[in-house]
Design a binder for these strands. Structure first.
Lengths: 151, 151
DNA sequence: TAAGATTAAATCGTGCACGATACAAATATA
DNA sequence: TATATTTGTATCGTGCACGATTTAATCTTA
């Protein structure tokens, strides 16, 4: 017999809308990131470095919740594009320091328009400023809680 | 000179916590999905089919916001595992209908415990029921809006 | 009804994610 | 101070995502 299990409906999941929203948001960024010839994860790394230049792979990973298995190849691609520099630390030969090149720093100037453009292409009325702020707070709280649970 | 652009801080993004939350949530599911020998996207397809068996690739894609370039290989893997059947429709030779096998239907029985287990391993106090519900509503609203913007 | 447009899957190439493992450097401990 | 443990990167294999393109079937329209 067919048993109805509402707990298994897609509409009742939390994971599914997170998954969908993340992917759809990334798609919304695509046209602007394409202009800069970078991908979304690369944009995240740049944001981390624009905020605080010269971080180890580990530190960037802590910031983005990623590990070296994902970051190493990604950072190598960014190095190839001339956006960053990878240097093995002299004080601790295990760690690799990542720092922005001139080109990587300059990209910030072009990127700073992206957030505004995105709000424009998304917002179009219907979004309450305060509601959005609360939603963002809830999201970050969720991330923080999830991070504790998944260590 | 170093220009401070708060709009580019990771803490002020909406996309970044969505991306992080999505990935961390998927990680929380991993142990339970591993027991069933399925991946997270495969779990989503199963949920779609448990709710409504026998859908075309296109219909599943509309439900999950995915297209055939992602779904075709994914569904082929699920077919190999004996979870689903892929049959080309006779009425419209373009469409491929996806339906659950007996094994795919049976998995629902094992899966129905997952949502509860997840809330357990996550919840541990600190989560307001109503707050969570509102957050979920906001998430789905966001997905719906994003979907309109990215067509 | 024949030519053009649209639609549904599939294929291809690139870039993530991530578990598992390897390896060397640094740290802790006997 | 040897030995064991931990730590930071890197490597490997698998499975998504997704833009671009292809192919075949269906639908439109002149």
């Amino acid at each position: 017999m067919k048993e109805e299990i509402p707990e298994l409906y897609l509409e009742n999941q939390l994971c599914f809308p997170l998954y969908a929203a993340s992917r759809l948001t990334t798609k919304l960024y695509a046209p602007y990131l394409n202009e800069l010839d970078i991908t979304y994860p690369q944009y995240l790394v740049l944001m981390a470095l624009w905020q605080h230049d010269s971080q180890s792979v580990k530190e960037i990973g802590n910031r983005l919740y990623l590990e070296s298995n994902t970051l190493t190849p990604l950072l190598k691609r960014m190095e190839q594009k001339g956006l960053i520099q990878r240097t093995r630390s002299t004080s601790d030969e295990r760690t690799v320091m990542i720092s922005l090149t001139e080109s990587g720093q300059d990209m910030k100037e072009k990127a700073k328009e992206i957030p505004h453009k995105l709000i424009e292409s998304f917002g179009e009325g219907s979004v309450n400023e305060e509601e959005l702020f609360n939603f963002q707070r809830a999201l970050f709280k969720l991330v923080s809680t999830l991070n504790k649970r998944t260590v």
